[in-house]
Design a protein around this nucleic acid. Structure first.
Length: 588
RNA sequence: CGGGACGUGGCUCAGCCUGGUAGAGCGCUUGGUUUGGGACCAAGAUGUCGCAGGUUCAAAUCCUGUCGUCCCGACCA
């Protein structure tokens, strides 16, 4: 491709609406342009890189035995009602109406569609196992799209769905995808690692996310360097000890704490109750029902755990500023800051307590009377706890639950997610098969997603420097940029550039020839901004010495004899591709 | 949905407080000089100052509303 024949609108200045470096570079390097919030047009170079990620995904999915299909974006709401997600994912669904005012859903994911297909076509155990995948557009009504392609209203996703006859078979399918994902991200030059994850509204009972470490990521990952434990903070557990039991105190005692409405205030003089001897009482509304959540004063609630443990679909904290919620505080008898669960708790309210409080005594908590607290509280003696769960958020430095090592936390971008679904969709949508004995069973499913557009941006987020993008050769829009410093037809640099272009192209190398009549500085800066992995500089100066200049994007310029230029470039590209290919190939 | 910031030429921004002629740099067009790290000179084109009301003799500027964008939170595969 010649530079002048495509469209590469590079920008010197940082776009005002791009916050993180990968988003800035996507725009500055002329890869994408925004149409509206969360909606992007892919320009020629951006599309090339996107397609390369998609191609790597396809190759590895095929290698793992998955088969490609293509499903409609426009989906009937009926199948969403059947699975129950018409309600549970309601807020994330983009809905449209046709001329007859019939509602359609712009698919955010395709479990319902593929399961409907399987229900019709996969009726015998002899047809199993199968793993269907597609690469296509997904729609999410994101509350707040941000960071360019990272969280968009419309994006490209690879989604795969496996169907097995047994749980063990489903585990095997899961493992194949897990391995394929490892290979995919490795080939994209990404340092991605799997972590244990919550299953959210997708459902199922076993799940890993593939994370790319990045300060700008939207996820916190808890990990242990000693044993390799890693989990999304929404799921992570730790080995923190339970609250130390003390000698059982006397009766609960009320004491005045005028104006004290925070854990911190109570921990200071004259009260001096350490946060770890306080019980924090939160009022939540879970699926329209008020509940109390008890945590130790120095712990934070993990809402994802709360939802996962209780099965709640919609939860929110009661809001003292919300008139409707005031009735809840009135029922308890106090405002936030003086709440507790020792008395005044309506008998139909569930009280969930974090396991760290099990057996705790000599605790202090709100008295459900503004300006008063109780001390000498023994939680099992004085509080009606409906159920004990792990509800707290892990913090840095806590002991690993598996090995006792010190846990760390880092930010990361979620680029892939694998789920073992079980029969969550096959049962309601009647995806059943007959076994050898003529018995009908629901198929055992798994689902596996990769955010292709997000992966592309993650590659940039991980690969850049002050001059621009630093692409891995596997994902770069072009592998080589030929930069003749004179483009006059018939000039020596241009003649050689044309010759190298033909040779490299014939060898299967992807080349762009910068045939713009621009000054050298402009061409060098642009090639670095766009980030082509290798640049061949062809100017009168080096030609006079019988040489060209080969400059890897992240390495030093080297002078190479003209005769050796093409072979040097070819070898370099091939060795880079080999370096990015996974060490241990998986058998098909 | 709550909090905050911002909407001025294709891009980045100034001007607004204190109302009165719409500006700069980059980019673009033309000509010339340049030509190994984002050149220089000259000439030029490009704006209903997001939109709608209001105040005023007069509004980019003040007021109200609205739409959009970005950030934080909430929320979220």
């Amino acid at each position: 491709m010649r530079w002048t024949q495509t469209l590469i609108p590079t920008l010197k200045e940082v776009p005002a609406d791009a916050e993180i470096v990968s988003h800035q570079l996507l725009v500055r390097a002329g890869l994408v342009r925004k149409l509206a919030g969360g909606l992007y047009t892919f320009l020629p170079l951006g599309l090339r890189s996107l397609n390369k990620v998609a191609q790597i995904v396809r190759e590895e999915m095929n290698r793992a035995g998955a088969i490609e299909v293509s499903m409609p974006c426009l989906q009937p709401p009926e199948i969403w009602q059947a699975s129950g997600r018409y309600e549970t994912m309601r807020d994330a669904l983009c809905r449209v109406k046709d001329r007859a005012q019939k509602e359609w859903i712009l698919g955010p994911t395709h479990e319902e569609v593929i399961t409907t297909l399987a229900a019709g076509e996969m009726n015998s155990y002899k047809q199993f196992p199968k793993n269907f995948y597609q690469v296509g557009i997904k729609f999410r009504d994101e509350i707040r799209p941000r960071f360019g392609l990272m969280r968009a209203k419309e994006f490209i996703m690879k989604d795969a769905y496996s169907f097995d006859t047994t749980d063990a078979g489903a585990m095997e399918s899961y493992k194949k995808m897990y391995d394929a994902y490892t290979r995919i991200f490795s080939r994209c030059g990404l340092q991605a690692f799997p972590v244990e994850a919550d299953t959210g509204v997708i459902g199922g009972n076993h799940s890993h996310e593939f994370m790319v470490p990045a300060a700008t990521g939207e996820n916190d990952v808890v990990y242990c360097e000693k044993c390799g434990y890693a989990a999304n903070i929404e799921k992570a557990i730790s080995g923190v000890p339970r609250t130390a039991a003390r000698e059982v105190g006397p009766e609960v005692e009320k004491f005045a704490t005028p104006g004290v409405v925070t854990i911190e205030a109570l921990s200071k003089a004259p009260y001096s109750v350490p946060a770890n001897r306080q019980i924090k009482t939160l009022v939540y509304i879970a699926d329209s029902q008020p509940v109390l959540i008890l945590l130790r004063g120095d712990d934070q609630l993990n809402e994802t755990k709360f939802m996962a443990r209780t099965g709640a679909i919609a939860v929110r904290p009661a809001d003292a500023k919300n008139a409707a919620d005031q009735a809840l505080f009135a029922a308890l008898g106090a405002q936030p800051g003086s709440l507790g669960a020792v008395r005044n708790v309506p008998s139909d309210w569930k009280v969930y307590a974090d396991e760290r409080l099990q057996g705790a005594n000599d605790m202090t908590t709100g008295a459900n009377e503004d300006g008063y607290h109780f001390r000498n509280v023994s939680i099992e003696r004085d509080i009606r706890v409906t159920a004990w769960f792990d509800l707290r958020t892990v913090t840095v430095g806590e002991p690993c639950a598996k090995c006792g090592g010190s846990l760390k936390i880092r930010r990361a971008i979620e680029v892939g997610h694998v789920f073992k679904l079980g029969t969550k969709y096959s049962e309601p949508l009647n995806a059943t098969f007959l076994d050898e004995n003529g018995q009908r069973h629901p198929s055992v499913m798994g689902c596996y997603g990769i955010g292709v557009t997000r992966t592309l941006q993650a590659v940039i987020e991980q690969g850049n420097d002050k001059d621009g993008v630093v692409w891995p050769v596997s994902v770069a829009p072009y592998q080589v940029c030929l930069t003749p410093l004179s483009v006059a037809p018939g000039s020596a640099p241009m003649e050689l550039a044309e010759k190298l272009y033909a040779e490299l192209t014939a060898a299967g190398i992807e080349v762009i020839l910068d045939d713009r009549d621009e000054r050298p500085g402009v061409k060098f800066k642009d090639s670095e901004l766009v980030g082509f992995p290798i640049r061949v500089g062809i100017g009168e100066k080096s030609l006079a010495k019988g040489e060209v200049e080969i400059k890897p994007r992240s390495g030093a310029i080297q002078a190479v004899k003209i005769e050796a230029a093409a072979s040097t470039v070819i070898e370099w590209v091939q060795s880079e591709l080999k370096r990015l290919s996974p060490q241990a190939p998986v058998a098909a």
